[in-house]
Write a protein that binds this DNA or RNA. Structure first.
Lengths: 343, 343
DNA sequence: GGTTGGCACTCTCGCCGTCCGAGTGCCAAT
DNA sequence: ATTGGCACTCGGACGGCGAGAGTGCCAACC
């Protein structure tokens, strides 16, 4: 009983099951794959695969379906990411080219990914803490309040209202603001905000005492924006695809939808992949630490301008998914988004 | 057979059905409401109501359920919006107070509305075309490209990259930009962008020929931002509540989820209400023009700082929903968001 | 030893007839 | 107009049955 053939059988089972979503029996396998052996032999192999925990039978007289471990072996050893056709590549590229701003890029990306994979797509906004500062702007808005606007090279624009104690809608105030603008932009421009934190802290010290407090408030606001939960954002599309899954999802799609609404969870899952260095990550069924998503698989990867990863994206689907195609789509979309962002 | 009692019967049917989600028969009605008449009388009334098309029987020997028309009568004539308890009001207020920026306000609002109503909440971002301009900022970003940032009094920040033909990252360029900033802000500041369009158009004419082209590009970008589809945005929460509905939704939740992903559709539905002048709008079942949502009801209203409506919000749920409570929640949330935005 | 055909066995699923109960519609009486 | 009574209808649950798919095992074969 060759190890090699056993794995071929596993691959055939995964492929058939993904396509038909019905347990596959020894006979059905022979019809669709010419393995060159008889049904009895396949049965023996299947028994062995079941022994190893790679496949399982829902009940005695049904075919087998892959287990999470079975899919894992399939993904790691039995499949290769299937490249996208040039036509698809062009379609991706041209769709994303048309975006007018970052929101639009993210929106188009997530919809594109959902429609390519016919699954739920998840796209994270470029992380503030990993983006460089393009510009800091200060806009006085009635009374002692100041609007601080932070623009990053990835196109994100964050705003925060700070109370600076004094009314700046005056000629004097305007002069103060001009100084502050220059100083703050000099301290942060072109750098990752986190790296600029010591320069940023020294800015107030260099200024006139009268202005110092205002400046401190602004600096605090900038630093806060990195810490807050809202620093990271994530966008979904294609949730309707969950309903197409048919007899999938052990119970129903309820828990999955709930988990997807927990953006914090999604961010953590996308985040870990970004740290892994840009390769595709596949999380299958129970490999997922979050209960609500344990009947699903995630395929994720990082993206970003150049080699710096600034965020993650991916899809969530049934464990019974077409991994090669999905992985190809995720990778291709990440590549193109990165290219657009680099622009 | 008094008209009055018949309506009381209808009300009782709606209330029971909303609570139990099972067809209600004449006997069950008597147990739960003391109508002071016998089952036979109720049956007669029910027959009459069915004749009028306000209720229907799923099959011969089952109880009755309200039709869309029945709910309509219930909402218009038989129910009153039930006020929220002071404790709830405080909870709403304090949750929304904590928001740090517009994104945060919208995010909190939509989640709050979803959890209050246990339905799908929909919140529109303040419409650009109905907000006043707080500030226009111009940031040169390498090469001939200029980032135009538009900040509105409702807190929205829109950005657009325009190609102005000449490199502005020079001392000369900076002077040009300073002039432009002053002119543009003078022309638009504090006004609704749409109203400022003639002033805006005249700005380039007043300037030096050299600067005129740059200015025209910027003005065009500003005006474009009003037209584009992205001008309006909408955010969802609580889609998982669709699964809780149980035996609802004629077929399944698939079409509903699909319709909810069509933000354009949602915007149109929210938009029409905003024009109606601030009262609550209820759209029941087939009253809804979009096929995917015809098994649902929507309760929507407008909100905005002061008396100007700048956007809409609401919920989408099964036609079998608790209208009085839902309407109360939608109205209360709209009130509080408006208050926060006025700040 | 691995492979194969044969065979008995096991379960699920769909089908069908039966039964039960909820709920109705109608009618005659008040 | 309201009421109690009564026959009737229909959907859903229950249970038995048969078909079919698929298995595991075994003895034979290369």
């Amino acid at each position: 009983m060759s190890e090699d053939r056993r794995l071929r059988v596993l691959r055939a089972i995964v492929q058939d099951y993904v396509q038909t979503s019905e347990p596959v029996g020894s006979k059905a396998l022979l019809d669709r794959h010419h393995l060159g052996v008889s049904a009895a032999t396949v049965r023996n192999d299947m028994a062995a695969l079941e022994e190893e925990g790679l496949i399982a039978a829902p009940h005695t007289s049904a075919g087998r379906i892959p287990t999470d471990a079975g899919y894992r072996v399939f993904v790691d050893r039995l499949s290769q990411v299937k490249p996208m056709s040039p036509a698809e590549q062009r379609a991706i590229g041209s769709l994303l080219e048309g975006a007018v701003d970052l929101d639009d890029v993210v929106d188009r990306t997530v919809r594109l990914l959902a429609s390519l994979t016919r699954q739920v797509a998840v796209v994270q906004y470029p992380s503030l803490s990993r983006s460089s500062v393009r510009h800091v702007e200060l806009v006085p808005i009635g009374g002692p309040r100041l609007l601080v606007v932070l623009i990053t090279t990835t196109g994100r624009v964050e705003q925060r209202v700070v109370d600076v104690g004094t009314d700046l809608l005056t000629p004097d105030g305007e002069a103060t603001l001009a100084t502050l603008r220059t100083e703050l932009n000099a301290a942060t421009g072109g750098r990752v905000l986190a790296d600029a934190s010591s320069e940023l802290a020294s800015v107030p010290e260099r200024l006139d005492p009268g202005v110092r407090d205002v400046c401190r408030a602004v600096v605090t606001a900038l630093e806060d924006s990195l810490v807050e939960e809202r620093e990271e954002r994530v966008v979904l599309a294609g949730t309707a695809n969950l309903t197409r899954a048919g007899a999938d999802f052990t119970q129903s799609i309820g828990p999955v939808l709930e988990a997807l609404e927990e953006h914090v969870v999604l961010l953590r899952l996308l985040g870990t992949v970004a740290e892994q260095g840009g390769t595709l990550a596949v999380r299958i069924g129970h490999e997922n630490p979050y209960a609500g998503l344990q009947s699903t698989s995630m395929v994720t990867t990082g993206y970003g301008a150049g080699s710096d990863l600034v965020a993650g994206l991916g899809v969530v689907g049934p464990t019974r998914m077409d991994y090669p195609s999905t992985m190809a789509a995720v990778r291709a979309v990440a590549t193109y988004v990165s290219r657009i962002l680099a622009d």
